[in-house]
């Protein structure tokens, strides 16, 4: 894909990344890819596990936190991690934000790090000439 999808940032106690995407669906997919990259060797994962995720939130920042949190719950419950994210629908209106997506991944035996939560701290989705970007801080 050529361009960086995410970059790890320095954080004293927790983990933080900066994520980019040419549009919001790509930002959401790259954020999920970045989060799982912190936890496992994503490129070694299979794609046999598939989950459909459907969410609604008050705004796009809340939707991004909810999306990643939902993936963490699936990961912890099924002992899986995910590497491909198909964002089928992502729309925003006055009532809030909605998402429908598919996550593909496989079984894992262990993780490099356990992420306890996806926080709102420093989360501001910004528009740039190239698309969208935000920082994300994870509690570990």
């Amino acid at each position: 894909m050529g361009k960086a999808r995410f970059q790890e940032l320095e954080h004293t106690a927790d983990l933080a990344i900066r994520v980019w995407g040419k549009d919001l669906p790509e930002l959401f997919a790259n954020a999920a890819y970045g989060m799982f990259s912190l936890m496992v060797e994503v490129d070694k994962l299979g794609t046999e596990a598939e989950h459909i995720v459907s969410l609604q939130a008050v705004d796009r920042e809340a939707l991004l936190v909810d999306w990643l949190s939902e993936l963490l719950t699936l990961h912890d419950t099924h002992r899986q991690a995910y590497r491909e994210f198909l964002i089928r629908n992502l729309f925003l209106d006055e009532e809030g934000a909605k998402l429908e997506a598919i996550a593909l991944g496989g079984k894992i035996e262990g993780v490099k790090i356990v992420i306890k939560g996806v926080t709102y701290h420093d989360l501001h989705i910004e528009e740039t000439p190239q698309g969208y970007t935000t920082a994300l801080v994870f509690d570990i």
Binding site: V58, E61, D66, S69, G117, V118
Partner: peptide, 24 residues
Amino acid sequence: VCTDYVRSMQGSLKKYGIELPDRE
């Protein structure tokens, strides 16, 4: 539990007139 309530309370701030410097 924390994730669920940080999520559900996001919609309640306006209702209680609470303004915060950090959504977390």
